[in-house]
């Protein structure tokens, strides 16, 4: 806790200047970047059929993560704030991703293969797969 002692007498007035927050101009640039990334996402969606499925999914998720980090880091100024806030937030985030990922894995749910891999695991799955087959034939 020694580090915190040093910053204890930061008045609120100075806190922001000291941490070197981006200027309004950079905020606008960041927003434009976010808009651009969204545009890429949409383009990827439109050309979904022309791209390999895995590439599409990985690309979209990568873009999502990048957007997430930019908003969190700059707009929520985690990048400029005390580390502990990032840690606290990451604790919840990582825990959420972790437990729900495990939960969905326990359902033998696969993000990459759309749904369930094994057969007859849940009620209605057999009919469901039958329907998918009927549709494609």
């Amino acid at each position: 806790m020694t580090a915190t002692d040093n910053i204890q007498d930061h008045g609120h007035d100075h806190a922001h200047d000291d941490h070197g927050h981006p200027s309004d101009r950079s905020y606008v640039m960041i927003a434009l970047l976010l808009g651009f990334l969204t545009a890429i996402e949409i383009v990827m969606f439109i050309f979904e059929d022309d791209l390999p499925g895995a590439f599409n999914k990985i690309g979209l998720i990568a873009l999502m993560i990048v957007k997430f980090i930019i908003v969190g880091g700059y707009f929520m100024h985690l990048k400029f704030d005390d580390n502990i806030l990032t840690k606290l937030f990451l604790a919840g985030l990582v825990l959420a991703v972790g437990v729900y990922w495990i939960m969905l894995s326990a359902f033998e749910f696969s993000f990459w293969n759309d749904g369930y891999e094994d057969t007859g695991f849940w009620d209605g799955q057999v009919e469901f797969e039958q329907r998918i087959e009927d549709q494609s034939s």
Binding site: M44, I61, M64, F68, V71
Partner: peptide, 15 residues
């Protein structure tokens, strides 16, 4: 907003 970033990708865009 970032929750929506996730929802938009995972629910709407991922084919």
């Amino acid at each position: 907003d970032i929750v929506w970033v996730i929802i938009f990708t995972v629910i709407y865009l991922i084919p």
